[in-house]
Design a binder for these strands. Structure first.
Lengths: 235, 235
DNA sequence: ATACTCTGGTTATAGCTTCTAACCAACGGA
DNA sequence: TCCGTTGGTTAGAAGCTATAACCAGAGTAT
């Protein structure tokens, strides 16, 4: 406690070196995950490829799960950025298709990383509370698309449930207000949650190779379900 | 080669004992998977709980992946049976909802087993060709529901793609004919694939606990997306 | 009944994993 | 110049899958 904590939070040479090695580790880990999925991530292999011995990694990450969660959080940011870059003007239906295409495009470009975010990677892996925040950033741009819609009868019960949810959970209300300040929050939530499920379904099946053989139906299937969704919210 | 292979394929006492132990192993493995997911399956732990030492398991299953694939195939049969038990008479829209509820119900009752079928369990796990057959048995009952529908414009491209798929792949044509001998195969396939993706999405999110906090919205969400699907196929 | 074979169990071991403990050199700040 | 913190090392514990070698006994054929 004598030669420490000057430069509170600033970039001492040590700190800069540390950050650089940490990002190198994450980069190598991402390559490994990209080749064999999350289960194929081996800290020993990362260390070897980085030119150090195994236990050295633990000076930078407390555990394998810590490394994974950090990658997951960054992954959420990445896909959120991809979706945000696809917000556009024009008819809500077209904007919805653009957002969906952006999500889908990112996922098929980084299939294993998508599975890392979407699936349950480790045995007893617990998603940190932060991850739901990041996930909300991903879905956020969908909210204003639906905020001006009118639910068809079939989706009315869902809208009712969303209404209750947003009433009971202030964090959700604030989230909706941040992305869709105007329009009906419950309708926006109903459409967004439906879009969420549909994206999850289509993309999950595609990245698992379930559409092998039937052309590149991922995109057309996605367009079809998104169109059905747009109809059911009355866009 | 002297005291063997009489009773070709019949149940000698040895064979019966073997089958019984195999099914005990699978049962214990299912419990472990039900508690911690596929990654938590340890052959050593299975052996210990069965009262034998580790390597004894390998007399019954060639590898951990072998055991997993066998469980997966049986799982497909189970969910297929659950869906098949929900086929009903009446309006197509109601039949669709009944099938979807059956699938959903089975999945939330066996969440880890569902993830075993839906996700990619092991690092380099390769789904055996047999599994697509079984998966088709699961989706089969959905085919006749849509066979009499008429695609809305938004799903027309998907129907066109399905038409090409069924033309180029005899196995698919036969599969459709077996479950929906009448009606348009392309329309049946389009609706079924859409239903598949929607089920996968809703159920995946639910079994991962993503709907925690917002009531039991799995069922209502499922009803909403299925209703949207029924609209888009014109049921 | 007796002799043989095949099978289901054992122990030992290799090689992999995550992760902890103890130690040491060297970098950077005072 | 001195000294503490840090980043690296080796050693090792506990666990995993999987293979090899071996052995007793159950079941079968003569």
């Amino acid at each position: 406690m004598r030669g420490t904590h000057h430069n509170e939070g600033m970039s001492t040479p040590r700190q800069r070196y540390r950050d650089q090695v940490r990002s190198e580790i994450k980069q190598i880990a991402l390559v490994q995950i990209g080749e064999g999925g999350a289960a194929a991530l081996s800290l020993n292999a990362v260390a070897k490829q980085l030119g150090v011995t195994g236990p050295a990694i633990y000076k930078y990450f407390r555990s394998r799960d810590d490394l994974l969660t950090e990658l997951i959080l960054e992954g959420f940011d990445e896909v959120a950025a991809a979706v945000r870059a696809a917000v556009s003007e024009g008819a809500p239906r077209e904007r919805l298709h653009a957002l969906a295409r952006a999500f889908h495009g990112w996922a098929v470009a980084n299939p294993h990383l998508f599975q890392l975010l979407a699936g349950t990677p480790s045995p007893g892996y617990e998603a940190p509370p932060e991850s739901v925040m990041r996930a909300r950033n991903v879905l956020g741009p969908f909210l204003p698309v639906f905020a001006g819609g009118h639910c068809r009868p079939g989706t009315e019960p869902l809208r009712e449930q969303m209404r209750r949810w947003v009433e009971e959970t202030p964090a959700v209300a604030e989230w909706v207000r941040a992305f869709a300040p105007e329009g009906d929050p419950a309708t926006a939530l109903a459409g967004t949650v439906m879009a969420w499920a549909q994206l999850q379904g289509v993309v999950s099946l595609e990245v698992q190779g379930q559409f092998a053989g039937m052309g590149h139906s991922g995109a057309t299937l996605l367009a079809a379900v998104m169109d059905a969704l747009a109809d059911s919210i009355g866009l």
